[in-house]
Design a protein around this nucleic acid. Structure first.
Length: 433
DNA sequence: GCCGTTTTCGGCCCGACTGTTTTCAGTCG
């Protein structure tokens, strides 16, 4: 059962998508999308907030605030209903199939009369998309892959999505156990010495509004401090993810701001970055510049479809980088949306264990990556882990429960997880010496 | 539609990849 904030966020997101489908101004589309993310990630119940205070949510101005207020009064937003009526049935759901965007969805609905993903699947297999401008064999493959991953992940996604907003790690772990094959290794036995949420001393992968987070540096740090963490890393995106518009100058200014906040918090603040692993395994900055960071997370954000040998080499090069500490969301899957990349897992584990590079257990319920079913084997190969929220909002910080659930499913103890360690041991690990 | 050390306008999420492209539109992160 989603929270009230999620319900409003879903309507704002739908409005944004409908605006996109109807050719609305792209900046308006983005405004609603941003507002949806901000509302969904807002830690207080919007239903309890005074109406005049709604615009305090970053990204919510007078127009969105009025729509939220309308939802609170009536349970609906008329503008959303009106726009729904203007969009051909099926176009919205088709536009979310990977490889099909708004333009192609409208084209498919208009020319073929298709209104569901099932019909799209049949049409592709029947060759009915052939001959439509812009569609070739690659498009067909991609669409079929997208439909397949949605189907294969549907049960897990639905089960995770139907959990209560305050579900515990044990409740989440039960969902994992019901939907995933049980890992082979179980010598620690259920419950004995397994990691608990309270064992985590910090979060090592988080964002701010300097890149695509919704909350300021100060806001994120204050919220992390309230969670009782001993240390906390800020790891905004790096320049090669161009849309994030990160620069050397910006990240250095942020570093100064973070250092200046050190005295205002009981936590040790770590300045980091989420680097982009390029197709050849290199990352955004040279070793000298990277040396200025306390910690780095390196993630794949492009060229997901490399063959296994190339992808394995790519990860190995990244892990061997003396300035890369954590491989972020290693298989880059998004549950129901994007399949895992093809990589030789044994080679990946070996490279991480050999180089002292942690594999991330990304706690976002949309990712769950490293996938829980792989964790035990990675541990057996000598890999250490970082359980990170990859938070883009205040509410995201509470997602650690999902990472802890995955770690428990994989049989991990606090000794396996670097952000359960005392600061000194963590810093030693980060030095890769 | 939101926002402001540029404050009521003007900028904001850019560029790589891909297909079947004939000079570019659509999608994605």
């Amino acid at each position: 059962m989603p929270s009230p904030n999620e319900a409003v966020a879903a309507l704002l997101r739908e409005y944004s998508e409908l605006l996109g489908l109807t050719g609305g101004d792209q900046f308006r589309v983005r405004s609603y999308e941003k507002a949806a993310r901000a509302v969904g990630g807002y830690p207080e119940d919007l239903g309890a907030l005074p109406e005049s205070a709604l615009t305090r949510v970053p990204g919510v101005g007078s127009s969105v605030a009025a729509k939220i207020a309308e939802y609170r009064r009536t349970g609906t937003i008329k503008a959303v209903d009106d726009l729904r009526a203007k969009v051909p049935p099926g176009a919205l759901v088709l536009s979310k199939v990977p490889g099909v965007g708004p333009k192609r969805a409208l084209q498919i609905v208009g020319e073929l009369g298709i209104t569901s993903v099932g019909e799209l699947d049949e049409a592709v297999r029947g060759g009915r998309l052939r001959g439509m401008p812009g569609f070739g064999p690659k498009s067909e493959e991609r669409i079929l892959r997208g439909i397949a991953i949605a189907a294969s992940d549907a049960a897990l996604r639905e089960a995770l999505g139907s959990l209560a907003p305050d579900a515990t790690a044990d409740e989440i772990c039960a969902v994992l156990a019901a939907h995933l094959a049980t890992p082979g290794a179980g010598e620690s036995g259920p419950g004995h010495g397994l990691i608990r949420a309270e064992d985590l001393r910090g979060d090592l992968h988080t964002h701010t509004d300097l890149t695509d987070g919704t909350v300021s540096l100060e806001g994120m740090i204050a919220a992390a401090g309230a969670r009782g963490y001993e240390y906390y890393a800020v790891t905004d995106h790096a320049p090669n993810l161009v849309m994030q518009r990160m620069t050397d100058e910006k990240v250095l200014v942020q570093r100064d701001q973070l250092r200046a906040l050190a005295d205002s918090t009981g936590m040790v603040l770590l300045h980091g970055s989420e680097l982009n692993i390029a197709p050849d395994g290199s990352v955004d900055w040279d070793e000298d510049f990277l040396g200025g960071f306390d910690i780095t997370v390196a993630s794949v954000h492009s060229s997901f479809e490399q063959d296994q040998a190339t992808m394995t080499k790519r990860f190995t090069v990244a892990a061997q980088n003396p300035r890369v500490n954590i491989i972020g969301h290693p298989l880059t899957r998004r549950i129901g949306r994007r399949p895992p990349v093809q990589v030789d897992l044994d080679a990946l584990y070996a490279a991480c264990a050999r180089t002292g590079t942690a594999l991330e257990i990304n706690a976002s319920p949309h990712r769950m990556d490293l996938p829980p079913e792989h964790i035990a084997a990675a541990r057996d190969a000598g890999v250490k882990f970082a359980i990170d929220t990859d938070a883009h909002s205040l509410a995201d910080l509470t997602n650690v429960r999902y990472g802890v659930a995955a770690a428990r499913f994989g049989g991990l103890t606090p000794d396996d997880v670097i952000n359960c360690w005392p600061l000194e041991r963590l810093l030693e690990f980060l030095s890769k010496s």
